[in-house]
């Protein structure tokens, strides 16, 4: 464990909690893409199946349960509890165009052709594009609530910190996982446009609105 991975995990946890609290406190999931949240629940489910097969540490196991629990709680709140506030008309990204090719890619490019490893690879590839429905929705509505931008900021920051974690681990441990690194770079690049808007607008107290 190193400082980049720890702050990365905490940033990821912060993002998940911010979103959960935003929906719970405001009793509304306006502006939130349910499709992205379903993809994140799928990412955690396919990645953390090793909860059943291997124990790494209490930290690792507990964080996995927290991530999975929060992800499904968020999906439940969007599609069941606060369904009336779900903005389905703007959440129209065709996720099947993501899931199917990524499923195929996971079969072709992986470290080991075993079920758990292919599911892990699928989850890594899927996570890199899982935010696209959310970013697409914001581009369609032309704006985002400030609390939602904070959610996206911490979510984007976590994988950027993981990139530094992988540099650290390569230098000090000789560890590197090309699949995770390439997907992590793609994932972080997808946030760059948002990061620019977040720094130039939200941090200056303005609302995040895109030129319609």
């Amino acid at each position: 464990m190193n400082i980049f991975r720890l702050t990365g995990d905490l940033s990821h946890l912060a993002a998940i909690i911010i979103l959960l609290l935003k929906i719970w406190k405001t009793r509304s999931c306006a502006g939130i893409s349910g499709k992205s949240q379903i993809l994140f629940a799928l990412v955690f489910t396919t990645r953390y199946l090793d909860l059943l097969t291997s124990f790494i540490s209490l930290y690792n196991t507990s964080m996995k349960f927290i991530y999975i629990g929060c992800a499904y709680a968020t999906v439940y709140m969007i599609y069941a509890k606060f369904k009336a506030t779900y903005d389905g008309n703007h959440d129209t990204f065709r996720v099947e165009f993501l899931v199917v090719p990524i499923g195929g890619l996971a079969f072709l490019v992986n470290h080991d052709f075993s079920p758990l490893e292919i599911l892990w690879t699928f989850s890594i590839y899927l996570e890199s594009v899982a935010i696209l429905p959310q970013l697409f929705m914001i581009s369609k509505t032309g704006e985002a609530e400030t609390i939602t931008t904070h959610y996206l900021f911490f979510l984007g920051l976590y994988r950027a910190l993981y990139l530094m974690n992988w540099i650290w681990r390569f230098y000090f441990e000789g560890f590197f996982d090309m699949i995770a690194i390439v997907a992590g770079v793609v994932q972080t690049i997808l946030y760059c446009d948002f990061f620019y808007l977040y720094v130039t607008k939200v941090l200056k107290g303005k609302k995040l609105s895109l030129p319609a």
Binding site: D9, D50, S54, H111, G174, F175, F176, D177
Partner: peptide
């Protein structure tokens, strides 16, 4: 090269 344990990251 993959790290010591299969996937020790979240």
């Amino acid at each position: 090269m993959i790290g010591r344990t299969k996937h020790d990251e979240l």
